[in-house]
Every structure is written in structure tokens, then in C-alpha cells.
């Protein structure tokens, strides 16, 4: 049964722009139903701020179903908050207690420059995908979908890593701001499939090198896996490293690389 939470103190990061100085702003929510989602709490706060003639807190969000990957937020120092396997938009106030103080910050990573308040620019992820996170199959020439059977365990494993929503929690949680989990999830998705074999080694090389241009290095902390709202296993990073090494040692003439 639902009940109302009382006296929630929010410490929210406010910052006008990437160059501006930021600070924490404190707001108190006197009462809120625990059925409300975390972002609905911010909606209510924003409505009040606008009503009081103040500027609303800027934060990214969209589907509120945990699938689009738009929402972010460090909540009490944890990417997407305290509930494991849950994006911020699916976090509900029933996870909190009366009189709680909740600190809300943006993703903090040098590859994700701040835009305003709690919103950051995650375009570096798109650059990684553009460099090789695809299978080249231009429209029109595809063979029948059942031509190549894919063993179910392989299809399932590919799907496990394809579930990544590109939210950036892995980068935000990583002390080095590394994007290995994000990059490896895509490599593992495509490199496991028969359709992905033709570009297997060029893909991993290009993606890893683009990743390194933007993000920090992985030192196996494992924070990314703990923060991932889709609970993608850190094993994919091993797979990426294995393929990267193979790509470097592979007979380059045979691979017809560019």
C-alpha cells in the first residue's frame, strides 16, 4: 500500500553552462507519495520553481520506461541511484525514507561535457558507434532472414549485450571515466553473430581506438557493471580485448583492411 514520504531534502547541482561555476542548491519536498517516480518528484519541484518565478532544473529524460537511455543523474553518488538494474526514470520514491537527504548530480566525466545543471553531452558515444558499431548491410541486398541459422545460445548472448541503452552510467561510475563496458557491449553483440564476422576485426580496432580518443582507460574496477541499469556483464570487456588482440596479430593481408 502506498504512503506519503515526509520532509525530503534535495541537494541539487546547478550550473548555468560548461564554463560557469556550479553549486548545490537545497530544496525541501514536504510530502510526496511513495508511488511517485524519482523524476516525477523533480517534475513537481520544477513546477513549483516555475510557479515561484525561478528557473526549472534542467535534466535529461524521455521514455520513463528505462529503455531510451536519455535519463542520467548521480543520486547519492550512485549512477541511477540505489536500486540495482534500474535506470533513474524507473526509480520510485518507495526506495527512500522519511527525512532523507538526497544529493543529485550530473554524470561527471571529461568525455561528457556539462550542458546545464544535470544535463551532459554524451555525443562521444555516437562517435564510437560511427567508427564501427554496425554491420555494413546497405538497404536492399539482404538474403532471406532464415538463410543463416544462429544457435539460440549465441543469439541470446548477443541479445544480452545488445540490451545496452547507451545511458552513460558505466562511464559516470568509472573512476577513470572509461567507456569499455559501452564499447564492448556493442562489440560483443555484433562480433558474436555470423552476420558480424566480415567486419569483426576492423570493427573492434576502430571502435577501441575511437573510444581511446575520447574516454579514459579501464583498470578493472568493475563499477560499470554494478551501475549498469541493464546489468550487462563485464565479461564483454574481456571478449573485446581478446578480439582487439587478435585484430592486431591477425594476418592483415587476409583481412583486406582499408
Amino acid at each position: 500500500m502506498s504512503h506519503n514520504l515526509k520532509n525530503i531534502t534535495l541537494k541539487i547541482w546547478r550550473q548555468d553552462g560548461p564554463q560557469a561555476k556550479g553549486n548545490f542548491e537545497t530544496h525541501v519536498i514536504d510530502e510526496i507519495t511513495d508511488e511517485a517516480s524519482f523524476l516525477e518528484m523533480l517534475d513537481i519541484l520544477n513546477d513549483k520553481l516555475v510557479h515561484d518565478g525561478k528557473e526549472a532544473v534542467v535534466f535529461d529524460h524521455d521514455c520513463r520506461e528505462g529503455i531510451c537511455g536519455t535519463c542520467s543523474l548521480m543520486i547519492d553518488g550512485q549512477a541511477h541511484g540505489p536500486q540495482r538494474g534500474t535506470a533513474t526514470c524507473q526509480l520510485h520514491m518507495r526506495q527512500f525514507q522519511d527525512n532523507a537527504t538526497i544529493t543529485i548530480e550530473p554524470w561527471r566525466a571529461s568525455a561528457f561535457p556539462l550542458i546545464k545543471d544535470l544535463m551532459v553531452d554524451r555525443s562521444a558515444f555516437d562517435r564510437v558507434i560511427e567508427s564501427g558499431g554496425y554491420i555494413t548491410a546497405e538497404t536492399g541486398g539482404a538474403p532471406d532472414a532464415n538463410l543463416i541459422p544462429i544457435p539460440k545460445p549465441i543469439a541470446d548472448a548477443a541479445m544480452d549485450s545488445a540490451e545496452c541503452i547507451g545511458c552513460g552510467a558505466c562511464v559516470a561510475a568509472c573512476p577513470n571515466g572509461a567507456a569499455n563496458l559501452f564499447t564492448a557491449a556493442k562489440v560483443a553483440h555484433l562480433n558474436r553473430l555470423p552476420q558480424g564476422q566480415a567486419e569483426r576485426y576492423s570493427r573492434v580496432e576502430n571502435m577501441v581506438e575511437t573510444m581511446d580518443e575520447h574516454f579514459g582507460s579501464c583498470t578493472n574496477h568493475g563499477e560499470c557493471e554494478a551501475a549498469c541499469p541493464k546489468e550487462i556483464s563485464i565479461d564483454v570487456i574481456a571478449l573485446m580485448h581478446k578480439d582487439y588482440r587478435k585484430a592486431k596479430f591477425a594476418n592483415r593481408k587476409d583481412l583486406a583492411r582499408k
Binding site: 554491420i135 548491410a137 536492399g140 539482404a142 532472414a145 544457435p151 539460440k152 543469439a155 541470446d156 548477443a158
Partner: peptide, 22 residues
Amino acid sequence: VDIIDQMVAQGVPFAREYGGLL
């Protein structure tokens, strides 16, 4: 019909049966 072919070629991991077919 063509959409399914195109998306499988793109690497969309559709659900499969144990024999490997869609």
C-alpha cells in the same frame, strides 16, 4: 518480408528456436 531480411542482416538479435531459425 524484406524488412525482416534487412534487420537480420543488420544484426538484430531476434528470438530464435533451438535449431537456429527465427
